[in-house]
């Protein structure tokens, strides 16, 4: 059974990666920009769910350099072009799955600027997002550079 399908914690996944060779690290280097992009996209969609004021929400959407769905399409297309090593097949499959889900959410959100009008729908989005973020956290390997939070140089972080 592959590491990801076991619902690993962040630490467990990283421990697994310790035994991996150059193939894995080449794959990580290749996938990191896309992983980061997925995390950012999930963060943006989460943020949109917080803004209760429709006007602010619309303003934020309008001021984005690229729309949420454009970003999601781009991520998906990039992932499709990546050829993983054997060890990374399952990892990539989960990344693609996250990207597809995010794309769906992004499109729905853009179509319905009045987020939160239907509590049941909002609840569903929260669940979806939560699953995606869990998946991305499982797919993290901070010691190799895949991590949801960028700590380098941030406040209260030291010993660079």
């Amino acid at each position: 059974m592959s590491a990801l399908t076991q619902r690993h914690t962040l630490t467990n996944w990283s421990a697994v990666s310790a035994a991996k060779g150059d193939d894995w690290f080449c794959y990580v280097a290749c996938i990191k920009p896309t992983y980061d992009q997925l995390i950012r996209l999930a963060g943006q969609i989460s943020g949109m769910l917080i803004l209760s004021d429709g006007e602010t929400r619309l303003e934020v959407l309008m001021n984005m350099p690229r729309s949420l769905s454009e970003q999601a399409e781009e991520v998906k297309a990039t992932l499709m072009r990546i050829k993983p090593p054997k060890l990374g097949v399952d990892h990539l499959r989960h990344m693609v799955s996250s990207a597809v889900k995010l794309n769906g959410l992004a499109r729905t959100l853009e179509a319905q600027v009045s987020v939160g009008a239907e509590p049941a729908v909002t609840c569903h989005w929260h669940r979806e997002l939560s699953e995606i973020l869990s998946l991305l956290k499982c797919a993290s390997d901070p010691w190799s550079g895949l991590q949801p939070v960028q700590f380098e140089g941030c406040c209260a972080c030291c010993a660079h």
Partner: peptide, 16 residues
């Protein structure tokens, strides 16, 4: 730097 998208989602959940 230093911001976790998972925290953003948790805040979204608080809003809900």
């Amino acid at each position: 730097l230093g911001t976790d998208p998972s925290d953003v989602l948790r805040v979204a959940d608080l809003a809900r």
